[in-house]
Design a binder for these strands. Structure first.
Lengths: 192, 192, 192, 192
DNA sequence: AATGAATGAGCTTTCATTCAT
DNA sequence: TATGAATGAAAGCTCATTCAT
């Protein structure tokens, strides 16, 4: 089995799913884009669903690792949150197709939402939740905000904005600037 | 034309789309739930897409009107923003199906996202943008945050949280409390 | 729903299954032969399997009824067995496609063999078994032959011969004569 | 060419065809069971059909030879027919998979039925036909039964019963006893 | 000869949409 | 207007067969 072929299929699927949406995307087209025959897809993935699930599972792992590595350089909760936001936007900029896919399709079905919140996605979000909780216990952040509310606010805000940014033609704002504004608001908002 | 039949179809579509997602939803099932024959659906709506579009267009109108009416009672930008958030969550609580549909399907296809940002949805978001801009011009809010960033932050945060809340079985937080925490963070974050 | 359409589909399926075999037969071709669109088939039958099962279930019923009616005219076990054989061959002559289908496809899969032996098919075979057992209790037939062996011998013999006869181009024997020969052998063979 | 590999493939095919039926059987699975790669199958057999045909042709040869050898020990037509039946059942008991395959798949397609009746299968059946004809010319058997009808009756009866016996879980009768009953009926039935 | 990954034609089934009644 | 049976295009998936190694 050819690992590069699997990888090519995964990348092609990201592109086609991002462009057409999961349901409108055709397996045949993914295969063609990957430069293989339709049937080959099924040697590497159980079915179309498995292709989407594999993207979620496998593409998120390096992102989380990279994000974790980036956060580990910082001691202070504030810096960790700022860095999380900055890194998220950097990721969006570098992988617009994957980002769009995660943003749009992750919501698509209750099934996915419920299955995956508990796994990789939760792990990602928890990076913010933990930083915030630590900030609270260090007396830096206000106590009347629940960490799980805060982490969802952060994610909701950056997710919404990056979706918009990716889809907008003009890209009149720089993601970096946007990230700073978001960090500013959210951190000013929770600082004691 | 039987307006009540159209309305029943719209309500049925909200339910079925919310439960099954737009693509998995069957027109036949929507018709059955509305108590009409399959073909009747096509007397009131051009096609399945039109059904979704009509939900976006028509169901949002009363929501926006209601939200506007609620906001008009308040002078201060801060109160307007707080009220917007509270009213949004109240709407989510009262129309969970519609809310879920807007949350999930509005992102579904680039097509919809691009077509509808400019219309009803934009109008809704702008209620926050305008309140924020007014707050800035009154010298209440910091200048280094762009209104369109702020309004998207607000929407992203409340949208993310209400999706989660609707889908979660436990509903361990009260939406009212969540709304207050969000308002607290975001307003503290932008106050001068 | 149009009962005649269902009937046409059933008849078409008998023809196509008999000609091509269940697995090689295409649903599209059955539909075309029935004069309907492919999808219409699925309004009347759950799937391709259901089409085959329905043939077994529904087409056998009138045959069994007719056979029973024919047998009921006769008192003597011998005559009942002779009549059974004669009527079976008459049926084969009148419904060669159905006969071939039953002969060939009924054996096809263990699944069918096991599922259907217990139902209609068993009922059919039992007509012979019962006549034979009655003959034994009346002291007409030898005791050292088990009724279930005898009934299977009868069926095996006539089934084998009718399959051959249906498939042979020449049809050099008349089925009526064949039937008489078989009756002669089997009844002479069991008479005390 | 590795004769043992060919043989292993043939044996594996018998098992898989018998279990799953020709059409549902997968070449890959046959190869796996034979301990070779999928592609290797095509070095020894032209295609899937050829695998089935080869079973018919090659596996029948030793059976026929053995049956012939068994029959040659007996002078009398009666004994030859009794022995044929007994040997057939012994073969069924020893090679249940092959027997089932012959019973079920030989009927499967008109194509096979027509192509193979003339060859090995016919040769097998003719052993009975010849014994019967000889019995007739010796004045032992009645003249009003055509040998080809008789041989088909014999085969139909034993084939039907052995299929049933192989598929039945309980095996409440012994094949040996069944064979005797069949011989009794058929010979009593044709004796002058 | 042997391998087993790759191929792609082919089939079943679904379902949005149409249309005769 | 209303119906719901009928349509048929469309797509996911399988698997016999091929072929580069």
């Amino acid at each position: 089995m050819d690992a590069s072929k699997r990888e090519r299929l995964l990348k092609a699927a990201i592109k086609v799913f991002a462009r057409d949406g999961f349901f409108k995307a055709k397996v045949e087209e993914i295969a063609k884009l990957a430069g293989v025959a339709t049937g080959t897809t099924y040697l590497y993935f159980k079915n179309k669903d498995d292709l989407l699930i594999s993207i979620f599972e496998e593409e998120m792992t390096p992102i989380i690792e990279k994000t974790k590595a980036g956060l580990s350089k910082h001691e202070s909760p504030e810096e960790r949150i700022t860095t999380f936001i900055a890194q998220h936007f950097a990721m969006v900029e570098q992988n617009p197709d994957l980002a769009l896919l995660l943003e749009v399709e992750l919501r698509q079905s209750n099934k996915f939402l419920h299955e995956y919140k508990g796994t990789k996605f939760k792990e990602y979000l928890d990076l913010v939740g933990e930083a915030f909780a630590e900030g609270q216990s260090k007396g830096l952040f206000r106590e009347d905000i629940h960490p799980s509310i805060f982490k969802q606010m952060v994610f909701g805000a950056i997710d919404q904005i990056s979706t918009n940014w990716t889809l907008s033609k003009t890209k009149k704002f720089k993601l970096k600037d946007i990230g700073q504004q978001i960090s500013t608001v959210l951190l000013s908002g929770v600082r004691k």
